[in-house]
Amino acid sequence: MGDIAATTGNAAAGRAAGSARGKPRDWKRTVFIALCVLPALGFLAVFMYYPIEETFRISLMHSSGLGGETWAGFDNYVRLFANPEFLAGLLHVFSWAFWSILIQLPLAFLIAFSLTFYVNKTTGPLRVVYYLANILPSAITAMLGKFVFSPNNGILSSIATKLHWTWLSNIDFFGDPKIAFWTVFIVATWTYTGFPIIYLMARIEQIPTEIREAAELDGAVGWRYAWHIVLPLVIYPMQILAVLCTVGSLKLFDLPYMLTTGGPGNATVTLGITLYRQGFINWQYGKAAAIGVVIFLLSLAFTIAQFSWQKREGDSR
């Protein structure tokens, strides 16, 4: 430890002097930095950069994954954009992102505000309840979703049958293409709202009590306080959550796959499901890689947007 301190200390001194007078490079320091960086760089190169490069390469090939690749150029991309399943997946992930931002985030804000503003005995258990869905494995969540919405023996169907509510018992939650998307979305809302709630609660709790007291003096209490004071203060985290929602939607796979496998027809298909089907069921690695590239590029665009937002926010402060 002492050696490291000495090395870095000497290096810092050398840098200060060397940069001014063009002294020879401090090799000890360079080697030390290289040793620190190399394992992480190696890990990234093997498990991230190489697979990304391979995905780009295979996306330009006709490949079944069992050898015998042939050059395809942009044929896989051209075919993808003429494939109704892929187009439906693209539409669904953006719809999913749109409705997540419009429904899940306001809902998360309302719950987060209620849990921080109206503190009582139930607050602690409620925090656990809301976050529980977020930590449950998707398989369990999907099973619970099926348990509720199953057509013949689901909770809703059973209750409706007992009460002779034929309007409800006749609804085919997973089998009607007009409803299936929303059934999956409801299950997902329960699952995915937990994280924004906790995240926003942490931000709301950081608001100084002086601000709340001053607001109260000015007559801003309850939901007026939420709307005029809290919301503007958490708008930046809300923006970040919106970006995360969008990127998460692009990668959406597990819950819709386990609930409906993308059906009926293409009613609940996502880009992730299309990728899986093309790669592992249809043996079309080239097309699957092309979908992977599309997801990657879209995610990258939204991530860059997020970083520029953060930077702009940082600059404005």
């Binding site: 199953s150 057509p151 013949n152 023996n153 006749n170 085919d172 939650f173 997973f174 089998g175 009607d176 293409p177 059906g263 009926p264």
Partner: peptide, 15 residues
């Protein structure tokens, strides 16, 4: 039936 697309193979067996 009225919900053929909502029922999986397991549901069919149960029916």
């Amino acid at each position: 039936g009225t919900k053929p697309l909502g029922e999986g193979y397991g549901d069919a067996q149960q029916l």
